[in-house]
C-alpha cells in the first residue's frame, strides 16, 4: 500500500513538474508581467550591425532610403533613428495600460513612427511629406497614378483613397487626389 500511495504522490508531483516546465525557460509572459512600460531606449538588440544596410530579410519588406540611411519596416528602430541624426521633432504617446510607446520622429521630408515590442522599438511606418524624396522605384508626391501602376504593377489592393502594395511584413500606400500622388506611406505589418 505504501508503494501505491507513494506512486500516487510521485505521479502528482511529476504532473506538477511537467506542467510547470512545459514550455521551458524560453516561454515569456505577456509584456505586462515584466512591467509593461515601454523602454526609453534599448541598446543594440536585434539591430543590424550596420543599420544603414539591409539584412537578409530586406527582400521581405519595403525599404526606404533617407539621406543614405535605409529604413526597413519592422527593423529595430534605435540605430536607424541614431543614423538619421538629430534634425527631428519628437512626439511620444504611451499605449493603454503602458503596453508600449508610440514614437513619432518628424524630419524635414519624412515622418518615422516606431512601436514597442518586448521592451524594444521597431520601425512602424515611414511617411513621405514632400517631393524632395522618392521611393526606390522613383515615385514621389506629385507622380501620377499611372506612374505608380507602371512602377509597382497592377496587382495592388485598391482602397477608398489610393492603392496598397504588400511585400513580406510591410506594405506601401499611395494616396491619390485627382490622379496624382498626394501621400506615400510605408507601413509595417505587426504580428
Amino acid at each position: 500500500m505504501n508503494k501505491k500511495f507513494l506512486s500516487v504522490m510521485m505521479a502528482s508531483v511529476m504532473a506538477l513538474s511537467v506542467v510547470a516546465c512545459a514550455s521551458g525557460d524560453e516561454d515569456t509572459a505577456p509584456v505586462v508581467l515584466s512591467g509593461g512600460q515601454a523602454a526609453e531606449s534599448v541598446e543594440g538588440g536585434n539591430a543590424a550591425s550596420n543599420p544603414g544596410e539591409t539584412d537578409e530579410q530586406a527582400a521581405d519588406a519595403f525599404v526606404f532610403t533617407y539621406n543614405g540611411t535605409q529604413i526597413r519596416m519592422n527593423a529595430p528602430a534605435d540605430d536607424i533613428i541614431a543614423a538619421l541624426g538629430d534634425g527631428y521633432t519628437y512626439f511620444e504617446a504611451p499605449s493603454c495600460a503602458y503596453e508600449g510607446m508610440d514614437k513619432v520622429y518628424t524630419y524635414n521630408s519624412i515622418v518615422v513612427r516606431s512601436y514597442t515590442m518586448d521592451g524594444a522599438d521597431y520601425i512602424a511606418s515611414v511617411e513621405l511629406k514632400d517631393d524632395t524624396v522618392a521611393t526606390a522605384e522613383g515615385i514621389r508626391i506629385g507622380s501620377t497614378e499611372d506612374d505608380v501602376r507602371a512602377a509597382y504593377g497592377e496587382d495592388g489592393t485598391p482602397g477608398t483613397s489610393g492603392i496598397e502594395y504588400t511585400m513580406g511584413d510591410s506594405f506601401i500606400s499611395f494616396i491619390f487626389e485627382n490622379g496624382q500622388v498626394t501621400a506615400i506611406t510605408y507601413t509595417a505589418i505587426v504580428g
Partner: peptide, 14 residues
Amino acid sequence: EGPFPDPMPLADYT
C-alpha cells in the same frame, strides 16, 4: 495637452 503629430494618411479608410 500638447500638439499632436499630423495623422498618417491611409489608402483605405473603410
